[in-house]
């Protein structure tokens, strides 16, 4: 009846006096790659654990495929989890780990083997079937954990910072691969991370969480281009928050331009200031501009060969910062 894979309704979770999740509601669509993004302590992992069934909400309810599972124990929910520490069974080899979910559900041995083989194929782990987890590298363990979850063909796959322990290069490779696997199997993925780049790279939609509430939900482009709150503006990429005309505005550093202070006006919004700092970063240069109105702005310019201007500005120079009107985004609940 419903299109939703997961519905979270007004869920509250407290640990002692600490309200970790504070009345969160969510609708996650079938087949979606949905990411819950936030700093540590934002409640994203707790929310994931409540969907998995490891924690019970103090209030509110959780629906999986339209069914209320709030009171259902973890082992009876059609979801599987890839844990941050992988949680591979150390006394079982790779195949036994991958087959575990099928074995406890009494799937026949032959079918078990076939499905495990297919899952191991998908994560490119053929030939390592009889290794123990202790004999695998971090990246291989991560793949076993993924295969062990996917082999059960769950309605929803929950991933708790699964790439957190890998080095940057491997992490970026796995991002591409995870997304490809998700497209192939068509399973709904709920991905928890504190890494905004990771979230941007893989997600269909992102929920940005802070202090136990969701600040904004949207596609990567939406949340970047139209951050709803100063928190989102700062957490996704970098942003200049400017108070003007009684409103709060977000200005992305790469949308700002610098010109000489006596250049003719172009019709864009502009503000005069003085260059305070210039940081050369190879692909781009970052300028800190102190506006005459008192605020500091971060301006980023790519170092294109034709951009002679970038070489000209130096600390102490008077400049004009300008931007298109459409690049200044008013934020909804401007908390001052």
């Amino acid at each position: 009846m419903s299109q939703s894979a997961v519905e979270v309704r007004e869920v509250v979770k407290r640990f002692g006096d600490n309200v970790v999740v504070n009345g969160v509601s969510l609708d996650i669509l079938t087949g979606e790659f949905f990411t819950m993004l936030g700093p540590s302590g934002s409640g994203k992992t707790t929310l994931l654990r409540m969907i998995a069934g490891f924690e019970a909400p103090d209030a509110g309810s959780i629906f999986l495929q339209g069914e209320d599972v709030t009171a259902r124990p973890a082992h009876l929910r059609p979801v599987n989890t890839v844990f941050q520490d992988y949680a591979l069974f150390p006394h079982m080899d790779v195949v036994a780990n991958v087959e575990y979910g099928l074995r406890v559900r009494k799937v026949a041995r032959k079918e078990r083997r076939e499905r495990a083989q297919r899952a191991l194929d998908m994560v490119q782990l053929k030939g390592l079937e009889s290794r123990r987890p202790a004999q695998l590298s971090g990246g291989q363990r991560q793949r076993v954990a993924l295969a062990r979850a996917i082999v059960n063909e769950p309605a929803v796959l929950l991933l708790d910072e699964p790439l957190g322990a890998l080095d940057l290069k491997l992490r970026q490779e796995m991002q591409v691969e995870l997304k490809a696997i998700q497209r192939r199997v068509g399973i709904t993925f709920i991905y928890v991370t504190h890494d905004q780049e990771e979230a941007m790279a893989m997600s269909d939609r992102i929920a940005i969480m802070n202090g136990g509430v969701i600040e904004q939900i949207g596609a990567p482009r939406d949340v970047y281009e139209h951050p709803a709150t100063p928190f989102v503006a700062r957490f996704i990429g970098t942003s200049n928050i400017l108070d003007r005309g009684g409103k709060r505005w977000s200005l992305r550093p790469e949308r700002l331009r610098l010109s000489l202070v006596d250049a003719p006006p172009t019709g864009d919004d502009r503000a005069p200031g003085q260059i305070q700092d210039v940081v050369y970063l190879g692909m781009m240069t970052r300028y800190i501009v102190h506006l005459d109105s008192g605020a500091d702005l971060v301006v980023v310019r790519t170092n294109e060969g034709s951009d002679a201007l970038s070489a000209r500005h130096a600390p102490g120079d008077r400049v004009m910062v300008s931007w298109h009107e459409r690049d200044a985004v008013v934020m909804d609940h401007a908390l001052i």
Partner: peptide, 11 residues
Amino acid sequence: TLFEASADLGA
């Protein structure tokens, strides 16, 4: 998490 993983996998 080993025990959680087991429950998560349906045990």
